[in-house]
């Protein structure tokens, strides 16, 4: 198949664009995809992502009509509606639609497990270790850009986290609120 944009190169990117509220299948080459703002990763031509909306990634694949009828147990959103709008209805949608969402998320992000910050309420022992690494990296970055106030604040949080890890406290809610007028 040749590219529908330039008509010269081989079409390697296949996506559904959203034009005038109608889905439209497009097949373009990598160069034109870049030009049109659809980003293609060179390492894996099958993996791509578009800025928004994400409808492109939702419609195709072999998931079929069955999943369209899946309904969120909390907000009642139909998966078929999500296909149209590209927007989920609530946090529980991530649970209710887990089957079709997994491949979608993998195609968008290439990865399925979160790395990085997390809310204080989630900081269990394992999480605290991850959080410690995140905070240390953030502190080094703060020092690097000479924001010593922020670095000191992060240092205090690191100390508190370390203390909690060594004393074995990991119940949610036991995190000392950082920076709230305590510590040095």
């Amino acid at each position: 198949m040749t590219c529908e944009n330039c008509g010269k190169r081989e079409a390697k990117v296949h996506y559904t664009a959203w034009e005038n509220n109608q889905p439209k299948e497009l097949h373009v080459c990598q160069e034109c995809a870049v030009e049109k703002g659809i980003v293609v990763t060179a390492s894996d031509p099958n993996k791509f992502s578009i800025q928004e909306p994400v409808i492109a990634l939702i419609g195709d694949t072999a998931i079929g009509a069955r999943v369209g009828k899946i309904q969120c147990s909390s907000c009642g959103l139909l998966y078929s509606t999500f296909r149209e709008t590209g927007r989920l209805g609530c946090a529980t949608c991530y649970e209710s639609f887990v089957e079709p969402l997994q491949p979608l998320l993998r195609r968008i992000h290439g990865n399925l497990s979160h790395v990085g910050r997390s809310p204080v309420s989630q900081h269990g022992a394992d999480q605290r270790r991850d959080q410690l690494r995140t905070l240390q990296a953030e502190m080094e970055s703060a020092i690097h850009r000479e924001n010593f106030e922020r670095a000191a604040e992060l240092r205090d949080r690191i100390h508190r986290l370390r203390d909690e890890l060594t004393t074995g406290q990991d119940a949610p809610g036991q995190d000392a609120p950082e920076g709230a007028g305590e510590g040095s």
Binding site: E52, A91, I108, H114
Partner: peptide, 21 residues
């Protein structure tokens, strides 16, 4: 505030292109 969050998917967002961080 109590943020919508899952250990596996991180911060939950309306659009799956934003989920995680």
């Amino acid at each position: 505030l109590d943020y919508a969050y899952r250990t596996d998917y991180g911060y939950l967002t309306a659009c799956p292109t934003n989920v995680g961080t």
